[in-house]
Simulated assay, not measured.
Amino acid sequence: MGSSFDRSKKRIQLWKKALLQFSLCFVMGFFSGFAPTTTTSSFFSSSSTSTSSSISFQSPQPILSNTTITTNLLSPPSLTSTQPSLDLQIETEDSEDSEDMTEDFQDFQDSQDSQDSQDSQQPEEPQEYSIIPNKLLIIVTTTSSRDPIREVKLRRLSHTLSLVDPPLLWIVVEDHLQAPKTSENLRKTGVMYRHLTVKENFTDSSSEADFQRNLALNHIEHHRLNGIVHFASLSNVYDLQFFQEIRDIEVFGTWPVAMLGANRKRVLVEGPICNSLQVVGWRKKDLQQG
């Protein structure tokens, strides 16, 4: 019984010794693997000495300053860093010229800043737009009860006046018997109008037209209408530029007019006789008579 116990105890001691020796060998081998060998260190030392070099060059001389640049390529101090480092040494000559240029640039910049500050302090003046309104045109039209196509002529003239730039006032004077139908037609024109009627009876067409013109002038004076008055006959044919030009009249304006008589086969030209800026008469001329 005692001999078997001694044998088992010896076996345990042998296993412990073997395990301890194995552990020591393993630890020594593990750390020896990290230790550098002599060949490796000599290789790196030789390569580092062979790659170390020194390069120096001189840049061309500029006009204002001469600069010399020296560059050294050094070997790495350790194995962990293999990139070369650059040491730049710049020596600048003519420092006085560079200082003068710096001062001039600073003065210029200060002047620009002061100019900008003055511009920002000055308030912007509002822009003024001069709008000249058009003068009021007062178109006076007289009618005759003896004209069979009076309504057609009124419609044609209304179409022309509807194309004229406002403001425009159309005063139509006629006999009171035709007033209801004419009023209905005037409402459809789209032109600002005033409709005046006459109750007097006339045997002469020219006398009737003169009376209607005077009635229209009295209406303008009574209501104090301020504008350019033009007597537009129903038989007249107009160019739209004409209405724009008569807006430039200040006091009085007149111009020659050609009249064509289809039944009489004759052409009449009538117009003012002027002396400088004054109208001294009126003239009628038959072109067929010469």
Rank of each mutant, 00 (worst) to 15 (best):
D116F: 05
S144P: 00
I138C: 08
I139M: 11
Q112A: 13
Q115C: 04
T142A: 05
V140Q: 05
I139D: 02
D119F: 01
P123L: 10
S145W: 00
Y129L: 15
L137Y: 07
T142E: 10
P126R: 00
L137A: 07
E124R: 13
T142D: 03
Q127N: 09
I131T: 06
I131E: 12
L136G: 06
S120E: 15
S144R: 07
I132K: 10
S117R: 08
I131D: 02
K135A: 08
Q112F: 05
P148W: 01
E124N: 10
S114T: 12
Q115L: 15
L136M: 12
T142W: 04
V140I: 14
Q112W: 06
D147T: 12
P123G: 07
R146P: 02
I149G: 02
D116N: 14
S114G: 01
P123H: 05
I131K: 06
S120T: 11
I149Q: 15
D147V: 09
Q115D: 15
R146W: 06
P133H: 06
D113Q: 13
Q127Y: 10
E124M: 11
I138Q: 08
T143C: 15
Q121Y: 02
E128N: 06
Q122T: 15
T142Q: 12
S144D: 13
S117W: 03
Q115I: 01
Q127D: 13
D147A: 14
I138K: 03
I138M: 10
K135I: 04
R146E: 09
Q118M: 12
S130R: 13
E128A: 04
P133A: 09
P126T: 11
I138A: 01
R146N: 10
Q118I: 05
T141Y: 03
L136F: 03
D119K: 09
S130K: 12
I132R: 14
P148D: 12
S144I: 08
S120W: 04
T142F: 01
S130E: 15
T141R: 01
S114Y: 10
S120H: 07
T141L: 02
E128G: 00
N134M: 03
I132Y: 09
L136S: 06
Q127I: 11
D119G: 05
I139S: 08
D147S: 14
E125H: 00
Y129R: 07
D113S: 11
Q112D: 06
D113R: 08
K135E: 13
D113E: 14
L136N: 08
S114H: 08
D116A: 14
I138N: 07
L137P: 05
D147P: 03
Q122G: 02
R146G: 02
V140E: 08
Q121I: 06
P148G: 03
K135Q: 11
Y129G: 00
I132D: 10
N134A: 06
Y129S: 09
S130H: 15
N134I: 00
Y129D: 13
P148A: 05
R146C: 02
P133D: 12
D116V: 05
S144F: 04
Q122F: 01
I131F: 14
Q122P: 00
L136A: 04
I131C: 02
L137R: 10
V140M: 05
S144W: 07
Q121L: 11
D113K: 09
E125F: 02
P133M: 07
I149T: 12
Q127F: 13
N134T: 07
T142V: 11
P133K: 10
D119E: 14
P133Q: 11
Y129A: 01
D119R: 06
Q118E: 15
T142S: 10
D113M: 06
Y129P: 00
D113V: 02
T143S: 15
